[in-house]
Design a protein around this nucleic acid. Structure first.
Length: 453
RNA sequence: GGCGACGUGGCCGAGUGGUUUAGGCAAGGGCCUGCAAAGCCCUCUACUUGGGUUCGAUUCCCAACGUCGCCUCCA
C-alpha cells in the first residue's frame, strides 16, 4: 500500500495502520495570530493531497488538525493593538478557513482548539510531575528531557550533540532549568495576560502540550501518522513525543514532514525575517489551483520556490488541461483506462510521487488529444476518465467551460454563424470582443468553445 | 561547533550505474485553420569541480567549492 518517508527512521516505509480500514492522522495546525502565509498553504495542500488519496484508496480518514489559539504571539498582538486576544484568534481562524476553502483544502474531520483542552493539559502536567519527568520553577513548569531516554529521535541528534558548540545562542530560561533543553509545559501568567488555574499557579500552557493531549484524546495511543512542516520536526514534534514517552504512552507510529517554501534567494520563508509572502495575495492574484499544481510538480519533501515565473507556468499548464477538459467534454463518462490508473497508484504509493503523476497526466492528455484528432473515440473516453479520476483524487478540478453565461454562449453561436457565412470580418470582431472580455476562444468544426482565461 | 539536505538543459523540476535518459513552462520549425486559438508532430538537451571505484557514472565513494535548513518563536 502507501509507502511514506518516516522522519524518525529516515526511511521510506509502509504506512502501517492500526485499523486496516481507517487512517488516523494528526496535523499541526496554525497559531492564529496573523494571515496565513505560503508555508501554511503548502503544508495544508500537501496533507490535503495525502488525505484525498487515502480516501480515494477506500480508507476512512480521520484527520485531526488543531488551532493554537493561545500563545505569546497572540498575546503580544492583542497588547500591541489594544484589543481582546479572542478577537484576534476568532478573526484569524475565520480568515484561515476561508483561505483553505479557496485553496480547495478539505476541512479536517476534527478541529480542536488549545483553549478547549487546558484542564486536560493541566492533568497531563500533573502526571508528568508525579512521574518525575517535570518540575516547577519560578516562571513555570518544565519537562525534564533527561527523563526521556531517546530524546532527539526526530532531530537525529543526541542531547550532547545539541548542546555542543552552538556558539552564542541564548538558552531561554537557562538559569531556572535543570537542563538547557528542558521546555515549558506551563508558563506562569503576567499581569493582564489570559490565564487558567493550575496547582502550581495561574498561567497558560506551553506550545508543545496541546498537541499531545488533543492527539491522544481524539485519536488514541499509537495513532498512525503525525504531520507538519519540516520546521516543526524540532523542537515541536520532538517535544510532543518527549511528553508522550514520559507519560508512558505510545505516540505517532509514523512522522511525515513537508519541505519549506523558499524565497527568491533560496532562503526559507521566515516570519522573523519579514519576507513572508501572504497566501491571501497569491489567492487574490492567481487561479488558486496554480499553487496546488506547483506543489504537485514538486516532491513534497523538496524545497519549493514560489515565484511569478513558476506560478505563471502553472497557470499556463492549467489552461492546457482546462482546454482538454472542454474539448473532450462530449466523451465524458467512460471507464478509466486501467493501465493509466495503475501507474498512478504505483507512483503515489511511492512516497507520494506526484511529479511522476503529473508527467503521467500530461502524457495521457496528449495521448487522448491525439486519439481525438484521429477519431478513436472509445480511447478518448477511457483516457479522459483516467485523467479526471487522477486529478480528482489529488483535489485538482478542471474547468470544462460550462460556467459560461447565456449571453456569451449566444455570442459564440453568432461567431459560428458568421464563419459559416464566411463573414470573417464579423467573426473576427466577435472573437476580439470575447477575448477582450477575458475569454479564451477556440473555434473548431464542432463549434466555438469559450472558457474563462 | 554538531546534525542534515542540496547543486540537472533558457527557466521550473523528477529520475537513473549503460539500449528511447521524465514532465511542465518558454523558444523555433511544421501540420491543421479563412486567419488565429486549441491540438498534434519535430527541434534545442543537462547533470558544480577534482579525484577514486567500475568494462562503463550525471547516478556509488572521497575531497573541494557553492547554496540552504535545524540545533528551543516558525507550516
Amino acid at each position: 500500500m502507501l509507502n511514506l518517508y518516516d522522519t524518525a527512521t529516515q526511511t521510506v516505509k509502509p504506512l502501517a495502520l492500526r485499523d486496516p480500514e481507517t487512517v488516523s492522522i494528526y496535523l499541526c495546525g496554525p497559531t492564529v495570530y496573523g494571515p496565513p502565509h505560503l508555508g501554511h498553504g503548502r503544508a495544508t495542500l500537501v496533507y490535503d493531497i495525502l488525505r484525498r488519496y487515502l480516501s480515494y484508496r477506500g480508507l476512512e480518514v480521520r484527520l485531526v488538525s488543531n488551532i493554537t489559539d493561545i500563545d505569546d504571539k497572540i498575546i503580544q498582538r492583542a497588547n500591541d493593538e489594544g484589543r481582546p486576544w479572542q478577537d484576534i484568534t476568532h478573526k484569524c481562524e475565520s480568515v484561515w478557513f476561508d483561505a483553505m476553502g479557496r485553496l480547495g483544502v478539505q476541512r479536517p474531520t476534527d478541529i480542536p482548539h488549545a483553549t478547549e483542552y487546558v484542564s486536560q493539559m493541566v492533568d497531563m502536567i500533573a502526571t508528568l510531575i508525579s512521574r518525575d519527568a517535570a518540575y516547577a520553577t519560578s516562571d513555570g513548569v518544565y519537562l525534564s528531557v533527561q527523563a526521556v531516554p531517546d530524546y532527539g529521535l526526530l532531530a537525529h541528534q543526541s542531547l550532547d550533540e545539541m548542546m555542543s558548540g552552538g556558539g552564542d545562542r541564548e538558552v531561554f530560561g537557562a538559569e531556572n532549568k535543570k537542563h538547557p533543553a528542558d521546555f515549558a509545559l506551563w508558563k506562569f501568567t503576567k499581569p493582564g495576560e489570559p490565564s487558567w488555574p493550575s496547582p502550581w499557579g495561574d498561567g497558560r500552557p506551553g506550545w508543545h502540550s496541546e498537541c499531545v493531549v488533543m492527539s491522544l484524546e481524539l485519536l488514541g495511543e499509537g495513532f498512525d501518522l503525525h504531520c507538519g512542516g519540516a520546521d516543526l520536526r524540532f523542537p515541536h514534534h520532538e517535544n510532543e513525543r518527549a511528553q508522550s514517552v514520559a507519560l508512558g504512552k505510545s505516540f505517532a507510529k509514523h512522522w511525515m514532514h513537508n519541505g519549506f517554501v523558499v524565497d527568491l534567494e533560496g532562503e526559507k520563508m521566515s516570519k522573523s525575517l519579514g519576507n513572508v509572502l501572504n497566501l491571501l495575495d497569491l489567492l487574490d492574484k492567481y487561479d488558486p489551483r496554480a499553487y496546488r499544481m506547483l506543489l504537485l510538480q514538486t516532491h513534497y519533501r523538496s524545497p519549493v520556490r514560489v515565484g511569478q515565473d513558476n506560478i505563471d507556468s502553472c497557470v499556463s499548464a492549467l489552461s492546457g488541461l482546462d482546454s482538454f477538459a472542454a474539448r473532450t467534454a462530449l466523451h465524458e463518462g467512460g471507464v478509466a483506462d486501467e493501465n493509466v490508473i495503475t501507474q498512478f497508484r504505483v507512483a503515489m504509493d511511492n512516497d507520494l510521487d506526484t511529479t511522476s503523476v503529473m508527467a503521467l497526466v500530461f502524457d495521457t492528455v496528449r495521448a487522448a488529444n491525439s486519439a481525438l484528432d484521429s477519431g478513436e473515440t472509445s480511447k478518448v473516453a477511457a483516457l479522459r476518465a483516467a485523467v479526471i479520476e487522477i486529478l480528482d483524487a489529488l483535489g485538482m478540478h478542471l474547468s470544462a467551460g460550462d460556467d459560461i453565461s447565456a449571453e456569451v454562449s449566444a455570442l459564440a453561436k453568432d461567431l459560428d454563424a458568421a464563419r459559416a457565412a464566411k463573414d470573417f470580418a464579423t467573426a473576427d470582431r466577435i472573437r476580439n470582443e470575447l477575448q477582450e472580455a477575458g475569454y479564451v476562444v477556440e473555434t473548431s468544426k464542432e463549434g466555438t468553445r469559450v472558457r474563462r482565461g
